[in-house]
Design a protein around this nucleic acid. Structure first.
Lengths: 335, 335
DNA sequence: ATGAAAGCGCTAACAG
DNA sequence: CTGTTAGCGCTTTCAT
């Protein structure tokens, strides 16, 4: 492959240690002339350190791993972009891997990253529960989960999903909607994938509607919701869809449009996530924004803190920090 | 950190070589009982091989790197997802890194991946030209570029951008549009970023319009196109925008909407790329789809071929393979 | 069937 | 200021 410090040492007629000193500022005294000469030769021969070897001996790679479900949602896109920028600022590189919604894939991605000695990992997990927590602990590496909470004891950064949905629902009710239809994935998916956020949002919704009376409630909790949209819509009462994700809301709107119904006029609808394609959709969907940028920045900061702690030999696993960030209501034209 | 083969050897009272034999099938004769015993102990202690060490000694990591601009477009999202699946099938893992449109970032990502001994790289580059080609060659690692062609001599997988635009333009003209406005980034950007695809598309456009007479042509080649949209639109003749990217088309439509003009009725417009958000925009934009899935699969297959060649000590840099794949016209309502 | 020893390329501790 | 030596954890000859 490329040239090594050994080669450089030979060419320059010095020892490998001297080469090392020339290459690294803090690594001991060296005569400026030798230094310069070595650096020149190194540059001439396009010397590049073998990062595997370095990582092996230092036990540190200045890499952080990120494992996300997929990359199709804008939320992840932005998250990744910010994590990359933030980590880069600290001299770290980011290794992204995908698990495409598969639990085993996620595990092997995490294991592999750990075995490659990444210094820390940020994960948006499909897995959840205590067993998984033990698996993560076993990796013996700082891990921060974002978006989906995994279990108590695993550092987590996200927004208060339940309270956000509480607010959203209250807002809808204030606008005099009399029939509310909650749209989210089936709760049976628990165990199959991490639907933590949707469970929380559902809780928030239920909590709120119970406080009011005279409101008709209905649920679309399965993947056939697209077909059921129209049938569930009562003509008589002022109806709104409360969706646990913008994607669902967009699907509903698409469907309704075919029947000539317009959001904000013929029915109300509110989403969640504030994905960026909403900018191109009319009417503007009212939704909730979970502050991606803040989540990303906080997660990175937290991860670095854990990494530092571990390096200093401190206890870094307990207590597991948990940062709940604010969300923001995005006013649109659909409620 | 974790337990090592040395530890296992000690626990089992055998040599490290024997442990190694137990762990790897093809690594020499070993007594079934010893083997089983070692494997049991290994499992009990959750032994996991240090991948840095292995990579260092084998010079091979079973990792491939992917460097892309970002993951905000559906195109990349899908590309990554398919690359991941395809590579996984071959026992490889994928390392994604982003360059966020920055040339230097891209270079350092590539360098880093190479220095971590990934076995090969797939890149959608912002850089282009012969100098960059030399840089890539210097990495001494199989690289396949997708989407944006970098230079002759660097393996490339993508569609024939020029011919696609030729077809698109012809289609517009057939529909009796008399004035065509081409919208794309300024060509001066060559050197600043990789606008290979846009250059090619522009060529295709020019080629085609020259074949017809009586057609009025005009260009929006700068970043202020948003403001110029209306002024450039002649009232008298049937006018269409030919855009070198869907994003531009969406901007134009947004602008026109404000003046009450509707695409497909008051003017024609065609995009390029078939980005996913088009599904949510009305009227449906007519556009061209480059076959992501095929690009991804072909790129991975090609990369593996190069990797194999290199491992077998064959010449893998010349000749650089180049696969041009078919594109597809997506019929919308705007032409 | 098992073991000893060398080496991948780098860093670190200890001499001189 | 420079060199020697040892070691990270794994794989790979070459002996026994």
């Amino acid at each position: 492959m490329g040239i090594t410090t050994k080669d450089l040492a030979q060419i320059c007629g010095v020892s490998r240690t001297t080469v090392h000193r020339a290459l690294h500022d803090g690594a001991g005294r060296i005569h400026p002339d030798t230094r310069e000469m070595i650096l020149r030769v190194a540059k001439e021969n396009d010397y590049r350190p073998d990062l595997l070897a370095r990582g092996l001996v230092k036990g540190q790679t200045f890499n952080i791993g990120v494992v996300v479900l997929d990359v199709k949602s804008r939320y992840f896109a932005e998250l990744l972009s910010i994590i990359g920028a933030e980590a880069g600022r600290q001299g770290y590189f980011v290794n992204i891997t995908l698990h495409d919604n598969d639990k085993e894939t996620e595990k092997s991605q995490l294991t592999r990253l750990a075995d490659y000695h990444v210094d820390g990992i940020i994960v948006s997990s499909v897995n959840e529960g205590d067993e998984y927590k033990n698996f993560l602990r076993g990796l013996d590496i700082p891990i921060v989960s974002v978006d989906n909470k995994i279990a108590d004891g695993i550092p987590f950064v996200g927004i208060d999903q339940r309270r956000a949905m509480t607010d959203a629902t209250a807002k809808v009710i204030e606008k005099k909607y009399e029939k509310l239809i909650f749209v989210c994935p089936p709760m049976e998916d628990t165990g199959k994938r991490n639907i933590y956020v949707h469970r929380e949002r559902l809780k928030g919704f239920k909590e709120t509607v119970e406080k009011y009376s005279g409101i008709e409630i209905s649920y679309l909790l399965d993947w056939n919701y697209r077909e059921h949209v129209e049938s569930v819509l009562g003509e008589s009462r002022k109806t709104a869809f409360v969706c646990s994700a913008d994607e669902f809301a967009l699907e509903v709107m698409k469907r309704m449009k075919k029947s000539g119904k317009r959001a904000g006029r013929d029915y109300g609808i509110i989403g969640f996530d504030n994905i960026d394609i909403l900018d191109y959709v009319t009417p503007r969907l009212t939704t909730i924004s979970n502050s991606v940028a803040e989540v990303a920045e906080t997660a990175v900061a937290l991860l670095f803190e854990l990494i530092m702690r571990k390096q200093e030999g401190k206890n870094w696993e307990e207590p597991a920090p948990c940062k709940i960030l604010p969300y923001r209501m995005v006013e649109g034209e659909t409620i």
